[in-house]
Nucleic acid binder design. Structure first.
Length: 215
DNA sequence: CATGCGAAGATCTTACATTG
DNA sequence: CAATGTAAGATCTTCGCATG
């Protein structure tokens, strides 16, 4: 299988390269390989392994290992295990468990917010945070704004909602790659890539501080 | 240090409102 | 009337802290 070792950072670069060179790009593997200083064969093999893994996970055949925490999952390009493994073990009538929002997703959410404005959850979901449904985005926003409103109070615990700024370079949407090819449209990755570069060019960290939202 | 408990936080569901 | 957004609340997880 994987004849070469892939480090976490290489995985990260791999994701970014996949976004950069979406499916259909000429000499895709060669160009990705070039970025990673690996051979095209290695890159292609790595991709196929990932696709296979995700397919297995998606179909409920395997449990995601414990070490697969959120950040690792995000770095690897998909969401935390929860959604996949829940329900397959026990009955189907159990209440569906929530998949924790990753930092990346939240940052993408902030970008979407900036781009489409408060209330257009559908556009944000379709074009930016493609791993979440409009309802999920709306729900997340709901609690996010509640959190913002109560920000003056002393916080007992830190929260993902405390992130009000986004460094575009850190919010690469790896988790939105369409690894399985089963869901999502092929335009998603390029769209997100465009979004990220757009914001990366226009904004510095801190620019998201003041959205001027009204509740 | 390990454990138990309460509070806070995160996510989902559902009902209702709004809009085209 | 269907699609979408908002509000409220239920449920589950995680954190912080006291206690032994």
């Amino acid at each position: 299988m994987a004849s070469s070792q892939w480090t976490r950072s290489e995985d990260k670069m791999f994701e970014q390269a996949l976004v950069l060179f979406p499916e259909g790009s000429p000499n895709r593997w060669e160009r990705i390989a070039d970025q990673l200083h690996k051979s095209a064969g290695e890159v292609r093999e790595h991709y196929e392994v990932l696709v296979h893994d995700v397919f297995e996970i998606d179909s409920g055949r395997v449990d995601v290992p414990d070490y697969m925490d959120d950040s690792a999952a995000a770095a690897a390009g998909w969401d935390s295990a929860g959604q996949i493994s829940f329900g397959s073990k026990h009955g189907e009538s159990e209440r569906k468990r929530g998949t924790p929002w990753t930092e990346n997703e939240h940052k993408l959410f902030l970008i979407g917010l900036k781009r489409y404005g408060k209330g257009d959850w559908r556009s944000i979901s379709r074009n930016v945070v493609v791993t979440r449904t409009p309802t999920q985005v709306a729900s997340h926003a709901q609690k996010y704004f509640l959190r913002q409103n109560s920000v003056k109070k002393e916080r007992k615990r830190s929260s993902i909602h405390d992130i009000t700024t986004v460094d575009a370079t850190l919010a690469m949407p790896g988790s939105n790659m369409d690894w399985t090819g089963q869901h999502g449209s092929p335009v998603q990755a390029p769209q997100q890539q465009q979004i990220m570069s757009e914001f990366g060019q226009q904004l510095n960290p801190g620019h998201f501080e003041d959205f001027g939202f009204r509740m």
